[in-house]
Lab assay of single mutants.
Amino acid sequence: MATGGRRGAAAAPLLVAVAALLLGAAGHLYPGEVCPGMDIRNNLTRLHELENCSVIEGHLQILLMFKTRPEDFRDLSFPKLIMITDYLLLFRVYGLESLKDLFPNLTVIRGSRLFFNYALVIFEMVHLKELGLYNLMNITRGSVRIEKNNELCYLATIDWSRILDSVEDNYIVLNKDDNEECGDICPGTAKGKTNCPATVINGQFVERCWTHSHCQKVCPTICKSHGCTAEGLCCHSECLGNCSQPDDPTKCVACRNFYLDGRCVETCPPPYYHFQDWRCVNFSFCQDLHHKCKNSRRQGCHQYVIHNNKCIPECPSGYTMNSSNLLCTPCLGPCPKVCHLLEGEKTIDSVTSAQELRGCTVINGSLIINIRGGNNLAAELEANLGLIEEISGYLKIRRSYALVSLSFFRKLRLIRGETLEIGNYSFYALDNQNLRQLWDWSKHNLTITQGKLFFHYNPKLCLSEIHKMEEVSGTKGRQERNDIALKTNGDQASCENELLKFSYIRTSFDKI
């Protein structure tokens, strides 16, 4: 039985969820670079991206490699990797027998973001014989899940209580170790020597080791999670996991709180800001991140802002960003909400898709409305799209047979046209069989910064309504002859009103 693990408890099935942008060198404390989270699957090609990484700022997932063999891993080693800020997950990587050479110096898994409450997941690794993470000293947050690894031993010899604050939620089941077939031998045991430290858990006094050649490092209890030197002297209180010299914040392997210019500090002093819960960055760093993602459509890219001495992905609820200094300031009234469309555009074809934009005031991208039916549609669209004030790209209304009016965009005031449909149009209306009105132009103002209007096959939309939009939106004169079809717009509506004058002759039985 794995020490510190839980057996036999019912657990939810383990679901495996399925960018080499360097964020800056980590400095003297770390020998390499800070790398983003990685999802490495199918083959070993991307694994080489770990070569210079000291910190993975995010998670590391290595999974679904069915053609790899043990010899493929023999020359692979990433000794610079010290810390993973989120979680480490391995799933069905064939041929991998140990992690001792792959990650010989991995010391800390912070667990800032977890995989279903777990910071370390080893699942269905069919050839893994031992973990071998002999320098792993601290899992700051989260638990361990090690399950269905039929060859995995050296679990009962690990004292997880020396690595985690609590072992109650560890789930370590259905491994070879369960069948008591392992016969784990710690260093020196074969020669009758006791080389590794022994600890007591559940009444068992057991030597602690990761492999037959690597003991588990056990520091004096007084050192807590700070770690200790090879001689057993406690590291500085700002260290986490390990250090090369005692009581020196510049000799830590990793930091308990924050890293700044080669030393570990309790908090980031001005003019620095907390970033990702582990390091200090200056304003320029946060500003660069903001600008890199301002026009990016890459998933996970955030326009970072500053709030409460932190550089964070977005302002919290009730705050909006001051564009001059990136500071989050309290909103006066309802907060603006910028919604970034991942692929640059979004099609609204149902109430469900409209709900995804609920509360958005600025759309960074283009909207395509293609709704053919739905219950209580006008009210639903207004509830979900009615706060949109600005669209950076274009607005396209296409084959939306259920629409009679666009009044559900009740606050839309600006279409920038930074991206144009077919390279020309910022407003595009095609084949809307029941569209009769755009907006009530006596109450609604709309500016279209650039781009043209396109109207074709809107049989109940009168040309007068379209011409009014040209005047109000500032697009009059931009359109070419064929942009607004004269014969297919309003051709099934009563669009022309003329005053009919009647004269009559009164007659009676005795007068003409």
Rank of each mutant, 00 (worst) to 15 (best):
L96S: 03
R298A: 12
G188C: 06
H236F: 02
M83E: 12
L133M: 04
C252V: 00
M125L: 02
S317N: 05
Y272S: 11
K224N: 07
T107E: 04
V144Q: 01
Q245A: 08
N309H: 10
D177S: 03
F73G: 07
E180G: 07
K217L: 11
I109F: 01
Q245R: 13
D75N: 15
H212S: 04
F103Y: 01
H59F: 02
H214T: 11
P249C: 03
D72M: 15
G333C: 07
F78Q: 02
L50F: 05
L133Y: 02
S77K: 08
R256F: 08
H290A: 09
E151S: 04
S54Q: 13
P104I: 01
S237N: 11
T229K: 06
N150Y: 05
T211R: 09
C315Y: 02
I84R: 00
P36S: 06
L128R: 00
N242F: 08
V305D: 03
L76V: 13
S284P: 01
L60F: 02
L174C: 12
L81S: 00
N179Q: 09
E57N: 10
F91I: 11
S323V: 14
P187F: 09
N195D: 08
V144T: 04
V305Y: 04
M83R: 00
I185C: 05
E124S: 10
N42S: 10
C215G: 09
D277H: 14
V34Y: 07
S225A: 09
L164D: 05
N150H: 07
R298T: 14
E57H: 14
F116A: 10
L240R: 05
E124Q: 05
C219E: 02
C252T: 02
N308W: 14
N135P: 04
R41H: 02
D248H: 03
L76E: 01
L60A: 02
I163N: 01
S244H: 09
L155V: 15
K129D: 03
T107C: 10
L240I: 12
V253E: 10
N52I: 02
T320R: 08
C268L: 01
R256H: 06
F275A: 03
R256A: 10
L152K: 01
L128Q: 05
T85K: 04
Y273G: 02
S77H: 02
I163Q: 03
T211F: 07
Q303R: 11
H48A: 04
P31I: 11
N42A: 05
L327N: 11
C239M: 00
G262F: 05
T320V: 08
R69C: 13
P36V: 05
C223Y: 02
K191G: 12
N105G: 08
N308F: 12
V265Q: 02
R279L: 11
G132S: 14
D169T: 13
N117S: 10
D261L: 08
Q245L: 08
H236W: 01
T329F: 09
G318P: 07
C328H: 01
G262H: 02
N170H: 06
M137L: 09
C186L: 04
N309W: 06
K176E: 11
D247V: 08
D72E: 11
H214W: 14
I312P: 07
S166I: 12
D248T: 03
Y273H: 11
R145P: 01
N308Q: 10
P270V: 04
P197I: 13
V34G: 06
C234P: 07
V265R: 07
G227R: 03
Y304F: 14
R74V: 14
R113P: 03
N117Q: 09
L50V: 07
Y272V: 03
A156D: 01
R297E: 10
N322Y: 06
R41M: 02
E180N: 08
R74K: 13
